[in-house]
Amino acid sequence: MNWQKVLHSSIGKKLVMALTGLFLIVFLLVHCYVNANVLFSNGAENFNRAAHFMGTNILVRIMEVGLFAGLLLHILQGYRLELKNRAARKSKYAVKAGGATSTWYSRSMALLGTLILLFLIIHLKQFWVPSRFGGLSEITYGNQPYHDLYSQMKEVFSQPWVVVLYVLGCFSLSWHLLHGFQSAFQTLGWSHSAYKGLIRSVGVGFSVIVPLIFALMPVFLYFGWEIPSGGLTLLF
């Protein structure tokens, strides 16, 4: 069997969803770790330095291209599967089993994904576009000029509606991950009584903790809260 045929089979299509999904999960982890700097009292400089590294390092930039490609593939394939799956039942049930047999979020991956996509468009416009195409003020640390992405965050998160939008975006992400994390492993065939429970627990932990840390960022910046860093630096 050649790989094109595999990718066109129903399992192959899901394989694409699983692999791109896991790749995006790794990205979330890195993104969350770097940005968590802003929660701390020494956040401004550490975060700006980290963002500078992420924006200039050649390897990271190459990964960024891969990230957009993976994201696009995940979105397009996701919609294709959703349409195909919906079309597989032309005559609909009058009464639905609903929550009796499956969780609402496992049945709503396309909807949750769409909400995340809408959030992403706004999010990229607010941060990614100005940091790549100009529009950020500059700040100097030790005679070196840096983009002041932190100030941009401060400014964007001074609007209450943005804070609410970001928190809602994190809820969508959390539910999407709650199903997606373990689903990716199931699709890859990595399910065994020996480690099935572990995958589920790690999945639930990831799906709650990572979106929670993300949600704390706009909230902290809006209220001006910070965790005393005690001189400790998360990164760089």
């Binding site: 129903s10 299509k13 899901k14 599967l81 195909k84 799956n85 597989a88 039942r89 089993a97 047999t101 499956s102 969780t103 496992s106 049945r107 991956m109 199903h179 373990q182 689903s183 199931q186 699709t187």
Partner: peptide, 8 residues
């Protein structure tokens, strides 16, 4: 359709 692991 394709399985989306809802486990219904």
């Amino acid at each position: 359709g394709s399985c989306t692991n809802t486990y219904a």
